[in-house]
Every structure is written in C-alpha cells, then in structure tokens.
Computed example of a mutant assay.
Amino acid sequence: MTRKPIAQLARKYTEYDMIARHTDLPEFPEGRVRLLQAVLADLQELGGQAELYPLATSLVQLGLDTHDLVENEESGAKAQTKQMRARQMKVLAGDYFSGRFYHLLSQAGQIETVKRLSEAVCEVNRIKMSLYGKMKQMRVNAEEYVSYGSAIRGVLFMSFGHLMSGMYAKLWPELVERFSRCELLLQELLRLQRPDELSGSWGVWHVMGEGSAEDRRALEERSDDHGLLRQLMDKYGVADKLVALLRQSAGQLQAMLPKLPSDKLAAELANLIEPFLHGPAWVPAAAIKELG
C-alpha cells in the first residue's frame, strides 16, 4: 500500500490562512518524520498508527520550532507593529500545532502516546535551557553544541522506541541520534551562507575552543558583528571542518543500514541519507569526495 507523505497530511494544519498571512513558519521536519514513518510502517502490527504517530509528532515538533523563532526576534519598543503581530502569531501558531497533536491522539484513544510525547517535550525544554545557559556564559564547546542540538532534534522521535522490539529497538536510538546529528551539521553548513545567522553557530564555538586569545576576545565583545564572524569562519576553515564532520556522521549512519531487518527499509533510509553524503550545493564535489 502506498503511504501518504506526512508533510502532505500536515498541510491541513499548517496551511492555516491566518498564520500564512501574518508570519513564516519553520522548516517542516521532513527527514526525521520520514525516518519515523518508514520504521513504524515496517512494523506491520501498527496499521494506521504508522501514519498517525509521525503526523502528531511533526505537529509537536513544529510547535516547538515555531516558539523558538519567537525567542530569536527583536522585542520591546524597537519592534514595529508588523513585527509584533508576527511574533504574536508565532506564539499562537506554536500553541495551535501543539493543540492539534493532542486532539489527534486523544481522538484515537492514544492517551499513552500523548503522555510520552508530553514528557518528551519537557525533556526537550530541559535540554534547551541547559544549552542556552551554557551559551549565555560562553561555556559550551563545539562538540557539546552538536550533542545538545542532536538531542533537541531527536528526543520526540526517540519516544517511540517502546513500540519496537528486537533489532529495531536496538538500532532506533542510534538511528535517530545519528540522523539528527547529520541534520544539524547540514544546517550549520547552510548557515555559513547567511552571515546574519552565524551568531551562536557551531563555527563560533569552534573558534572559542580553538582560536587565539585575541580572536576569542573579539568574539565575546562583538558577537553580532557579521563581518567579523564571516572573517573568522574563513580563517579557521569552519566549512571544511563541518563537511568532514557531516561526512563522518553520514558514513556511520550508512554503515547501520545492513543491520536493519528489512532490505526494503534499508533502501528507503539510504535515500534519506543521500543529501548528507553530498552536502549543500555550494560545497565543491571534490571536497566531499576527498573527505570520503
């Protein structure tokens, strides 16, 4: 039976006129949702829940990600009326997505899943608070940043491990962690092309750990200076280092595929991993090949 893409099913909730008119939404968590759907669909006993669970999880994730956008925007007297309206709409949109997840699962009698996802949301927020606290004090290193970021992306999806058994249960936590790590590293590479998004990025924490005293001091004093950030990213070869980390993590993820109980599932996941093996379009193919 052909499966409907979860992103298509989610449009019923995400393409809400009021939201679309006043604000932009975060990127749909396509990769992780497809990963969850593919594995759950391979568990024959789940039936229609193999679509319900990823759909509900995607809405929870969208709710969290939408609220995160609010935290990164300017507030107070300097914000214009249009910006304030967009902020308010993001708060409402995040709440709306969270409410839809609860409605979907409770209607289907999936109270235990509501409980598990709610607990996962609490854990995501706990990890975020820990990361943001360290970032504010400039006490996080580059590897910690990746570990925290991967966990934040993966916790909701980890919560479905109780439905699995055998090799599925054994591999699921590592699959989610590795996939989330690859997503994060790819996102960090893409941020290098957007100077206004470099503040707080992996490259900053890499320079804080590996840079000269002078460069570290400059970062602390001028963390919002786009020109300085761009210069330091180039000076310390951040793009090359991120490509190497992405290629390494993608290779580890790829090496897990032969362990999966289903060849069909392995082939499906191989397609999901493909973007990680090639990196963003602006990264020279020769660089990826050389690192491989």
Rank of each mutant, 00 (worst) to 15 (best):
K128G: 06
G227H: 00
M164H: 09
R222C: 11
H278A: 14
M84T: 02
A287H: 10
H206Q: 05
L184N: 12
T81W: 06
V146F: 10
Y148H: 12
H67I: 03
Q44H: 08
T81G: 08
M158E: 11
A7N: 01
G200N: 11
R153S: 09
Q61I: 06
H206Y: 10
A20V: 07
A120D: 02
R11I: 14
M167P: 11
S58T: 06
E74F: 09
E274K: 09
V155S: 03
R194P: 01
G47N: 13
V243P: 03
G161Y: 00
C182V: 11
G109L: 01
E177H: 13
W205Q: 08
K90G: 07
G161K: 01
A151Y: 05
L105N: 04
Q254P: 13
H67K: 01
C122G: 08
E51S: 15
N141Q: 03
Y16E: 12
A213T: 02
L35E: 01
E177A: 15
P54Q: 00
A10H: 03
T113Q: 05
F276R: 05
V204P: 04
E197V: 02
H206P: 00
Y148V: 10
L190A: 12
E143S: 06
K134I: 07
Q231A: 13
G251Q: 10
M135V: 01
D196G: 03
M135P: 02
R194K: 07
P258N: 10
R11P: 15
Q231N: 01
L190Q: 13
I6L: 09
F157D: 04
P173Q: 01
E197N: 03
K170N: 10
L40K: 06
F276E: 08
K259L: 15
A250F: 11
S106C: 06
S249A: 15
Y145H: 13
A285C: 09
A267I: 00
A281N: 10
A286V: 15
E112H: 02
Q80H: 12
L64F: 08
S75E: 14
R3C: 10
G47S: 14
G47D: 13
K235I: 02
H67Q: 04
A239R: 08
F28M: 05
Y16K: 02
N125K: 03
W205V: 07
L171E: 07
D17S: 09
S75A: 15
I6N: 02
L104S: 06
L232Y: 00
P29G: 04
L131D: 03
Q231G: 04
L92E: 05
S118L: 10
E74G: 13
F157Y: 14
Q187R: 14
A286P: 14
V207L: 06
E123Y: 00
E290W: 07
T2M: 10
D196M: 06
H226G: 07
G94T: 06
S249L: 12
Q8I: 12
E119N: 11
A286F: 15
R247F: 06
Y145C: 12
E274V: 05
G209H: 03
L190D: 12
M18C: 08
P280K: 00
